[in-house]
C-alpha cells in the first residue's frame, strides 16, 4: 500500500509557531502603531457631525476630480446616512484607505526595486503570484495568529491582499517607459536615481495610478472578507445579514460598499485623467 502524505499543514503550523515566537515583540509594536493610526483616522471621521464630513469629503473630491463626482460623493454619503450605516461606512473607508496606504508604502518601493533589478523581479514575481492566487480567506488565519482578532489583523490581511497590483504595475509602468527616454536621460549625464525621479516615475505615473486604483478596489473588497476577523464596518453588516439570511440588511451593506467603490474608483481614474489632460 502506498502511503504518500505531504504534511504541509503541520509544517506550516510548526513554522508559524517558531516565527511568531521570535517576531512577536516586533509584531506587537507594529500592531500598536497600526492601531493608533486606525483609531486616529476613525476619530477624525466619526467625531465631527456627519454633515461636516460630507462637506469636507465633497470638497476634497471636487478639488481632485471635479464637480460631478463631488455631487455624486455627497449624495452617496447621504444615502449611507439615510440607510443608517454611517458609522460602518466610515469604518470601511478607514480600513480600505489605511490598507491602501500601507500597501502602497511597501508596494511602490518594491515595484521600483523590481523595475531596476531583474533579479529582484524574478524573486518577487512568484511571491506576488502566490499572494494573489491564494484564496483571500487564507490570509485571515496568519493575520489573526500574529495580531489577534480585530482591525489591525484586518488591516494586515488587506495589505497583503492589495499590495501585489501596486508592486506589479509600478514595476510594469517603469519598465514600459520607452528606451529612448531613458537613453536621452542617460545621454545628458543622469545617474540612475535622477533618471528614475525625473523621467521614469513621471512617465510611469498613469500605470502606477492604475495600480493604485486596483489596490484601493482590492482593499475595499478585502474589508468585507476581513469582517470575519473583526474588521467591522460595512463588511460586518453583510456578514451578519448572511448569518441571519436577512436579504434586506445584506442589500443595505452591499449598497454602501458599492457607493464607496464607485466614489474611490472614479476618484483615482479622474486624477489620472486630469494629469494627462494638463499636457495636451
Amino acid at each position: 500500500m502506498i502511503n504518500f502524505v505531504i504534511p504541509l499543514a503541520d509544517w506550516v503550523n510548526a513554522i508559524f509557531e517558531i516565527v511568531s515566537f521570535y517576531i512577536s515583540p516586533v509584531l506587537r509594536s507594529l500592531s500598536s502603531f497600526l492601531e493608533i493610526i486606525i483609531k486616529w483616522f476613525e476619530t477624525v471621521l466619526l467625531w465631527p457631525p456627519e454633515a461636516v464630513i460630507m462637506i469636507v469629503i465633497g470638497l476634497i473630491v471636487w478639488r481632485l476630480a471635479g464637480k460631478r463626482l463631488a455631487v455624486f460623493a455627497v449624495a452617496g454619503l447621504l444615502i449611507t446616512f439615510g440607510l443608517q450605516v454611517w458609522e460602518e461606512t466610515m469604518t470601511t473607508i478607514v480600513l480600505a484607505l489605511s490598507g491602501t496606504a500601507v500597501s502602497l508604502l511597501f508596494g511602490i518601493p518594491l515595484g521600483i526595486i523590481a523595475s531596476q533589478n531583474d533579479m529582484a523581479e524574478r524573486i518577487l514575481r512568484p511571491i506576488l503570484d502566490f499572494m494573489q492566487t491564494l484564496p483571500s480567506f487564507v490570509y485571515l488565519i496568519p493575520a489573526v495568529m500574529f495580531f489577534g482578532m480585530g482591525k489591525v489583523a484586518a488591516l494586515v490581511a488587506t495589505m497583503i491582499f492589495a499590495m501585489p497590483p501596486a508592486v506589479r504595475l509600478t514595476n510594469l509602468g517603469i519598465r514600459e517607459v520607452s528606451r529612448e527616454m531613458v537613453e536621452a536621460a542617460r545621454a545628458f549625464g543622469s545617474n540612475k536615481w535622477q533618471t528614475l525621479i525625473d523621467v521614469q516615475l513621471p512617465l510611469a505615473l498613469p500605470t502606477i495610478m492604475a495600480g493604485i486604483n486596483q489596490c484601493i478596489m482590492m482593499s475595499l473588497a478585502m474589508t468585507v472578507i476581513a469582517s470575519m476577523i473583526g474588521a467591522g464596518g460595512l463588511g460586518l453588516v453583510v456578514l451578519e445579514s448572511m448569518q441571519m439570511l436577512d436579504i434586506g440588511m445584506g442589500t443595505v451593506g452591499g449598497a454602501g460598499i458599492v457607493i464607496l467603490a464607485i466614489i474611490l474608483d472614479r476618484l483615482t481614474e479622474n486624477i489620472t485623467k486630469k494629469q494627462e489632460l494638463s499636457k495636451n
Binding site: E180, M181, E183, A184, R186, A187, F188, G189, S190, N191, V199, P202, L203, L205, K279
Partner: peptide
C-alpha cells in the same frame, strides 16, 4: 562619464526623445 555627458558631449536623437511630461 556622467561628467563628460553633462558638460562635453550632448546628443540629438532620431526619435526626438523629448520628455512628454
Amino acid at each position: 562619464l556622467q561628467d563628460l555627458r553633462r558638460k562635453k558631449i550632448s546628443m540629438v536623437f532620431q526619435s526626438f526623445a523629448v520628455f512628454p511630461h
